[in-house]
Design a protein around this nucleic acid. Structure first.
Length: 682
DNA sequence: ATTAGGG
DNA sequence: CCCTAAT
């Protein structure tokens, strides 16, 4: 139903413009929560990805910036006679950052220079079954208020028993470790283990930790609080320096709260233990429902609880269409994960390596990042199951949270700090990841080798093998924050981030350490995507602000090479690794290109429009173009005063209306031909 | 994979 | 921008 009409028509030929339906303003503010969710999901996916695939090639981004004009597309005369109109309004699209402030705890972070390391280990106690393929069981944990989050991944063991298992959260950076003991039986009855030196463990019932259950809360709190001062919880320290257990105050939500978008005050890390359930129970639809509900409804306890319960309904990340490979790769994790079990077989070593040789201690290997314990051993011990073929079973016990350095003025709000942290984390997560494999602390770079050749056998010592999650690239850095854009670290090689609106907010600082590898460093360049034309730099309030006050410096340094922290957590529902794309306002030149293309091709041929005018703008999909057109039409109809964002020349808007009218009519005609009867109605 | 529309 | 349904 494409109108294959001559493309070159005169602009004077438009006829009666059919009244187009008013497009509704598509101005919706993406909710932070959603974003967080996405991020979490992302993290989850990451974990999953790792679990599922030993090696992922990093996707390489490609960037070539061709401006439209270079393509000779902008042929039509542009005499923006009506420029007077523009510029009247220059309101920024982005609202004050406050709006997105989030109370929700999110990830692990550290304000201090100290390298925060969160190590979460999940040891599943039951390996009873070898439903190897079932895979990833679940990830959980949570953190309270943006402090630390532990993430646990449980691989293998298809039949995860709810209530059995133990989660150890090791905040090595702080010398605090929290353990979450899961037991069946009386749920909600967390077991608290006596704090040991330098270690604090708290337990939480596996099944669902009732948020509102005061008992739980109180119980746990002490444990947490008891953690000595060495533990740095930026937010909480100042707030309520309570050295003892405030048993009286229930309002101190520290504990098991699995979330807390509301609990502004929570400051202590909390872990939520979620029951492990067989993955992929949910169907996408369900997930969506939940998800959407989730962020539409202000998290109330009740809701939250519901969610927490549902959290397990992790989506089976599949089928999500995307243009971005990265998303895709993450999304496929179920498949990949499975792969690990199904295909990673190693023809057994007759050959000879003895696993004995490998003795790197867990600490060493995993110190970096993701340590994957492996486990043929573990499995073997718990299972009578004998690997029929020599398969290598792997279990990733923990991921380490990369260092996050954040510098922020004292006057900044906690909310902004949280945002910043989230940005940093989001940046990491959203960029996609690479998986690195370490054997005895050494990175295995040759992807072509077989596990066997590499020396990974099913009977390796568990500790010998380690996985790393390395930031792949930062494709969609978090949106900039008005009050201060992050700056690159001094040592950072300034990359051409200029054009990328949000880009500046994220700096991946690669600190060569130990095995730090170059791959980490390379990620940066990819930040810049080819743009259609010189994109308008986003509202430039940022630079100024950042200079003045809230200079934010967010650097993520994948220390040893490791990298990512996975922090999925409650509400792991949606977001298949799909983070909401960053907003990228169309520049005037883009608009013009769009208008011109549509004038020629008409509406309804977005793919062609895309190819014609935005072929080089990878980030503009035909859907985007269509949406943009929609908004343009809308914009053209409203008064200039009501328009927001970068003003579009009236001339263009006029053309938009003309073209829209013209093509609408064409479309109507077209339909008339097909259905003469209805023609009269029109 | 595209298109069209609602959100 | 996202999400879906329908092509």
């Amino acid at each position: 139903m494409v109108l294959q009409k001559r493309l070159d028509y005169g602009f004077n030929g438009y006829q009666v413009p059919p009244t187009p339906r008013a497009t509704r303003s598509a101005r919706r503010r993406s909710s932070l929560k959603k974003r967080i969710d996405d991020t979490q999901m992302c993290a989850f996916d990451l974990l999953a990805t790792v679990a599922g695939k030993l090696l992922l090639d990093g996707e390489n981004s490609h960037a070539s910036a061709d401006s439209l004009t270079e393509k000779g597309q902008c042929v039509v005369s542009k005499d923006f006679a009506n420029k007077e109109q523009q510029g009247k309004e220059k309101s920024l699209e982005e609202k004050p950052s406050d709006e997105r402030s989030c109370d929700r705890p999110f990830i692990v972070s550290e304000l201090i220079s100290k390298a925060p390391v969160v190590n979460n280990n999940v040891k599943e106690l039951s390996h009873a079954h070898n439903d190897a393929c079932s895979g990833l069981a679940s990830v959980i944990t949570t953190s309270d208020c943006s402090e630390k989050v532990g993430s646990a991944v449980k691989l293998v063991n298809g039949e995860s028993r709810i209530g059995h298992g133990k989660i150890d959260v090791d905040f090595s950076g702080y010398g605090v470790s929290a353990g979450c003991k899961l037991e069946d039986g009386n749920k909600n009855q967390p077991k608290i283990e006596p704090p040991k030196t330098g270690k604090v463990s708290f337990g939480a019932m596996a099944d669902i930790c009732r948020l509102e259950d005061p008992v739980v809360g109180n119980r746990k709190r002490p444990a947490l609080v008891s953690s000595d001062n060495s533990v740095k919880f930026p937010f909480c320290r100042d707030r309520s320096p309570r050295g003892s257990f405030p048993k009286s105050r229930n309002d101190v939500n520290i504990v098991v709260r699995d979330d807390d978008e509301n609990s502004s005050g929570c400051t202590q890390p909390s872990t939520v233990c979620k029951a492990f359930r067989p993955p992929r129970i949910e169907d996408r639809r369900m997930r969506r429902l939940l998800a959407s509900k989730y962020w539409k409804v202000t998290p109330k306890l009740k809701d939250r609880e519901r969610f927490s319960t549902d959290a397990d309904l992790r989506p089976a990340y599949r089928s999500r269409r995307n243009f971005y490979h990265r998303q895709r790769s993450l999304r496929d994790y179920p498949f990949k994960k499975r792969k690990i079990y199904d295909h990673s077989s190693v023809s057994n070593s007759g050959g000879g390596f003895s696993s004995d040789g490998m003795s790197s201690s867990p600490g060493k290997v995993s110190s970096g990042d993701v340590s994957a314990g492996t486990s043929a051993f573990a499995a073997g011990q718990h299972t009578s199951f004998q690997p029929r073929d020599s398969h290598v079973k792997l279990k990733i016990k923990s991921f380490r949270v990369p260092e996050l350095f954040i510098e922020i003025p004292e006057t900044a709000t906690v909310g902004s700090l949280k945002r910043r942290v989230m940005d940093a984390v989001t940046a990491i997560l959203s960029g996609g990841l690479h998986v690195g494999v370490l054997l005895q602390g050494k990175k295995i770079r040759d992807d072509t080798k077989t596990l066997q050749q590499t020396g990974i056998f099913h009977d390796n010592k568990l500790d010998a093998l380690g996985f790393m999650l390395e930031p792949n690239r930062t494709e969609s850095p978090p949106p900039q924050h008005p009050e201060g854009r992050s700056l690159l670290l001094p040592c950072e090689t300034p990359q051409p981030l200029a054009r990328y609106p949000a880009a500046p907010s994220v700096a991946h600082k690669v600190v060569p350490q130990g095995t730090c590898d170059a791959s980490l460093v390379t990620n940066f360049g990819n930040l810049i995507e080819s743009d259609h034309d010189s994109a308008p730099s986003p509202p430039d309030t940022s630079i100024e602000k950042s200079l003045t006050g809230s200079r934010a410096l967010v650097a993520v340094s994948p220390m040893t090479a490791e990298a990512l922290a996975a922090v999925p957590v409650r509400k792991v529902k949606r977001s298949d690794a799909a983070q909401r794309r960053i907003r990228r306002p169309f520049s005037v030149s883009e608009v013009e290109a769009l208008v011109q293309a549509v004038e020629k091709l008409g509406t309804g041929r977005w793919r062609d429009v895309k190819m014609r005018a935005f072929d080089n703008a990878k980030h503009r999909t035909y859907v985007d173009l269509k949406d943009k057109w929609k908004t343009l039409v809308h914009t053209a109809r409203i008064s200039p005063q009501q328009r927001r964002g970068e003003p579009v020349p009236q001339e263009l808007l006029d053309r938009v209306l003309c073209a829209h009218a013209y093509w609408s009519q064409q479309q109507a005609k077209q339909q008339c031909k097909q259905q003469p009867e209805t023609c009269f109605l029109l």
